[in-house]
Design a protein around this nucleic acid. Structure first.
Length: 152
DNA sequence: GCCAACGTTGGC
DNA sequence: GCCAACGTTGGC
Protein backbone atom coordinates (compact mmCIF):
# COMPACT_ATOMS: atom_id res chain seq x y z
CA UNK A 1 0.00 0.00 0.00
CA UNK A 2 1.16 3.50 -0.79
CA UNK A 3 1.22 6.20 1.86
CA UNK A 4 0.94 9.93 1.33
CA UNK A 5 0.80 13.30 3.06
CA UNK A 6 -1.45 16.23 2.20
CA UNK A 7 -1.11 19.76 3.49
CA UNK A 8 -3.97 22.05 4.36
CA UNK A 9 -4.26 25.29 6.24
CA UNK A 10 -6.44 24.54 9.25
CA UNK A 11 -7.98 28.00 8.99
CA UNK A 12 -9.32 26.90 5.61
CA UNK A 13 -9.96 23.19 6.18
CA UNK A 14 -8.81 21.33 9.29
CA UNK A 15 -8.86 17.75 10.53
CA UNK A 16 -11.91 18.71 12.62
CA UNK A 17 -13.66 19.92 9.48
CA UNK A 18 -12.95 16.58 7.81
CA UNK A 19 -14.13 14.70 10.88
CA UNK A 20 -17.39 16.62 10.78
CA UNK A 21 -17.93 16.19 7.04
CA UNK A 22 -16.55 12.63 6.99
CA UNK A 23 -15.54 12.98 3.37
CA UNK A 24 -14.33 15.80 1.15
CA UNK A 25 -13.18 16.25 -2.46
CA UNK A 26 -9.54 17.36 -2.22
CA UNK A 27 -10.03 20.26 -4.61
CA UNK A 28 -7.94 23.29 -5.46
CA UNK A 29 -4.62 21.56 -6.01
CA UNK A 30 -2.97 23.54 -8.83
CA UNK A 31 0.48 22.07 -9.04
CA UNK A 32 1.35 19.49 -11.67
CA UNK A 33 3.52 17.30 -9.49
CA UNK A 34 0.86 17.19 -6.78
CA UNK A 35 -1.81 16.46 -9.39
CA UNK A 36 0.21 13.61 -10.84
CA UNK A 37 0.47 12.00 -7.43
CA UNK A 38 -3.30 12.19 -6.90
CA UNK A 39 -4.12 11.10 -10.42
CA UNK A 40 -1.52 8.40 -10.97
CA UNK A 41 -0.44 7.05 -7.60
CA UNK A 42 -3.32 7.24 -5.16
CA UNK A 43 -5.55 4.20 -4.92
CA UNK A 44 -8.77 3.84 -2.99
CA UNK A 45 -8.05 2.90 0.60
CA UNK A 46 -4.54 4.35 0.70
CA UNK A 47 -3.70 6.11 3.94
CA UNK A 48 -2.73 9.78 3.99
CA UNK A 49 -1.17 11.87 6.74
CA UNK A 50 -3.16 15.05 7.30
CA UNK A 51 -0.78 17.98 7.79
CA UNK A 52 -1.70 21.41 9.09
CA UNK A 53 0.41 24.08 7.39
CA UNK A 54 0.65 27.77 8.23
CA UNK A 55 -0.59 26.79 11.66
CA UNK A 56 0.36 27.37 15.26
CA UNK A 57 2.07 25.03 15.42
CA UNK A 58 2.24 23.30 12.05
CA UNK A 59 2.33 19.52 12.09
CA UNK A 60 0.61 16.22 11.40
CA UNK A 61 -2.88 16.28 12.89
CA UNK A 62 -4.27 12.92 11.86
CA UNK A 63 -4.90 10.44 9.08
CA UNK A 64 -7.34 10.31 6.21
CA UNK A 65 -7.99 7.76 3.50
CA UNK A 66 -8.32 7.93 -0.27
CA UNK A 67 -12.04 7.41 -0.83
CA UNK A 68 -12.50 7.69 -4.61
CA UNK A 69 -10.78 7.12 -7.88
CA UNK A 70 -9.22 10.22 -9.43
CA UNK A 71 -11.67 12.45 -11.33
CA UNK A 72 -11.56 15.98 -12.78
CA UNK A 73 -11.64 18.73 -10.16
CA UNK A 74 -15.01 20.44 -10.80
CA UNK A 75 -13.79 23.76 -9.40
CA UNK A 76 -11.55 24.26 -12.43
CA UNK A 77 -14.65 24.87 -14.57
CA UNK A 78 -16.49 27.05 -12.04
CA UNK A 79 -16.02 30.71 -12.90
CA UNK A 80 -17.12 31.64 -9.39
CA UNK A 81 -14.51 29.46 -7.72
CA UNK A 82 -11.14 30.79 -6.63
CA UNK A 83 -9.74 27.66 -8.26
CA UNK A 84 -11.26 28.43 -11.66
CA UNK A 85 -8.84 27.74 -14.50
CA UNK A 86 -10.03 29.32 -17.76
CA UNK A 87 -7.35 27.44 -19.67
CA UNK A 88 -8.61 24.02 -18.71
CA UNK A 89 -10.56 22.28 -21.50
CA UNK A 90 -13.59 20.29 -20.29
CA UNK A 91 -12.80 17.76 -23.02
CA UNK A 92 -9.32 17.36 -21.61
CA UNK A 93 -9.32 18.48 -17.96
CA UNK A 94 -6.08 19.73 -16.54
CA UNK A 95 -6.72 19.15 -12.82
CA UNK A 96 -7.68 15.94 -11.04
CA UNK A 97 -8.51 15.12 -7.46
CA UNK A 98 -9.60 12.31 -5.19
CA UNK A 99 -12.02 12.34 -2.27
CA UNK A 100 -10.54 12.08 1.20
CA UNK A 101 -12.36 10.33 4.04
CA UNK A 102 -11.74 10.94 7.73
CA UNK A 103 -9.82 8.15 9.40
CA UNK A 104 -8.56 9.47 12.73
CA UNK A 105 -7.45 12.56 14.55
CA UNK A 106 -4.27 12.13 16.56
CA UNK A 107 -4.54 12.45 20.32
CA UNK A 108 -1.84 15.07 19.98
CA UNK A 109 -0.46 17.05 17.07
CA UNK A 110 2.97 15.88 15.96
CA UNK A 111 4.63 19.20 15.22
CA UNK A 112 7.03 20.02 12.44
CA UNK A 113 9.66 20.85 15.05
CA UNK A 114 9.29 17.36 16.46
CA UNK A 115 9.44 15.67 13.04
CA UNK A 116 12.75 17.38 12.37
CA UNK A 117 14.32 15.77 15.43
CA UNK A 118 14.28 12.20 14.16
CA UNK A 119 16.94 10.75 11.89
CA UNK A 120 14.32 8.20 10.78
CA UNK A 121 12.40 11.04 9.12
CA UNK A 122 15.30 13.01 7.70
CA UNK A 123 14.56 11.86 4.14
CA UNK A 124 10.88 12.83 4.24
CA UNK A 125 9.87 14.97 1.28
CA UNK A 126 8.09 17.26 3.71
CA UNK A 127 11.34 18.10 5.45
CA UNK A 128 13.45 18.77 2.39
CA UNK A 129 14.65 22.31 2.02
CA UNK A 130 12.20 24.61 0.35
CA UNK A 131 9.61 21.92 -0.21
CA UNK A 132 6.26 23.41 -1.16
CA UNK A 133 4.43 20.40 -2.51
CA UNK A 134 0.95 20.08 -1.03
CA UNK A 135 0.55 16.40 -1.93
CA UNK A 136 3.46 14.00 -1.55
CA UNK A 137 4.37 10.40 -1.00
CA UNK A 138 5.58 9.08 2.34
CA UNK A 139 7.33 5.75 2.85
CA UNK A 140 5.54 3.13 4.88
CA UNK A 141 8.33 3.29 7.48
CA UNK A 142 7.92 7.05 7.83
CA UNK A 143 4.17 6.67 8.04
CA UNK A 144 4.35 4.08 10.80
CA UNK A 145 7.01 6.03 12.67
CA UNK A 146 4.78 9.10 12.80
CA UNK A 147 1.81 7.02 13.90
CA UNK A 148 3.95 5.66 16.73
CA UNK A 149 4.98 9.19 17.69
CA UNK A 150 1.34 10.16 17.91
CA UNK A 151 0.83 7.02 20.00
CA UNK A 152 -2.34 5.94 18.31
C1' DG B 1 4.67 40.62 8.23
C1' DC B 2 8.96 39.07 6.27
C1' DC B 3 11.29 36.59 3.10
C1' DA B 4 13.47 32.37 0.95
C1' DA B 5 12.35 29.02 -2.24
C1' DC B 6 10.28 27.66 -6.08
C1' DG B 7 6.73 27.14 -10.01
C1' DT B 8 4.70 29.52 -13.82
C1' DT B 9 4.26 32.92 -17.36
C1' DG B 10 5.41 35.37 -21.24
C1' DG B 11 8.57 38.32 -24.03
C1' DC B 12 12.09 37.71 -27.02
C1' DG C 1 14.29 27.54 -25.44
C1' DC C 2 16.01 31.03 -22.25
C1' DC C 3 15.31 33.62 -18.40
C1' DA C 4 13.46 37.71 -15.86
C1' DA C 5 9.46 38.95 -13.58
C1' DC C 6 5.93 37.68 -10.91
C1' DG C 7 2.92 35.08 -7.74
C1' DT C 8 2.49 31.69 -4.14
C1' DT C 9 3.76 28.80 -0.31
C1' DG C 10 4.72 28.33 4.25
C1' DG C 11 8.07 28.61 8.19
C1' DC C 12 9.36 31.77 11.38
Amino acid sequence: MNCFLVKTEPGVFSIDDLKKKKREPWDGVRNYQARNIMRDEMKMGDLVLFYHSNADPSGVAGVCRVASKPYPDPTQFDADSPYFDPKSDPENPRWFLVDMAFEKKFKRLVSLTELKQYAELAEMTLLQRGNRLSVMTVTQDEFEFILALASC
